[in-house]
């Protein structure tokens, strides 16, 4: 291929319900402005959102799937982090 490749962008959209921006897909575009325009054209055709973020994919640092156990396994044994670990007498009512 003689053509230069278009950079890749990740698209995040805040839905109307007031939730945080959520990843919804990706696209290729030459710059941020056009990435935003393309994201608007492709990912919000049916009122899906009120705000868009586009982020160059190359700017994302992700955890390595091989580290999954080391990173996330230790929380499994820490059941005292959950409210159900603690006993509250019924007479006290909802807490």
């Amino acid at each position: 291929m003689t053509e230069k490749t278009m950079p890749l962008w990740e698209v995040f959209i805040r839905s109307r319900t007031g939730l945080s921006h959520r990843h919804c897909g990706s696209l290729h575009a030459p710059d941020a402005e056009m990435a935003l325009q393309a994201a608007r054209d492709v990912y919000t055709r049916r009122g899906e959102g009120l705000s868009i973020w586009v982020v160059p994919s190359s700017a994302i640092t992700a955890s390595d799937p091989q580290d999954k156990d080391a990173l996330f396994e230790p929380t499994a044994s820490k059941i005292y982090r959950h409210p159900t670990f603690y006993e509250v007498p019924e007479e006290v009512g909802h807490m």
Partner: peptide, 8 residues
């Protein structure tokens, strides 16, 4: 998509 730049 999904940071495949990291693909090894």
């Amino acid at each position: 998509m999904y940071a495949q730049a990291l693909n090894v």
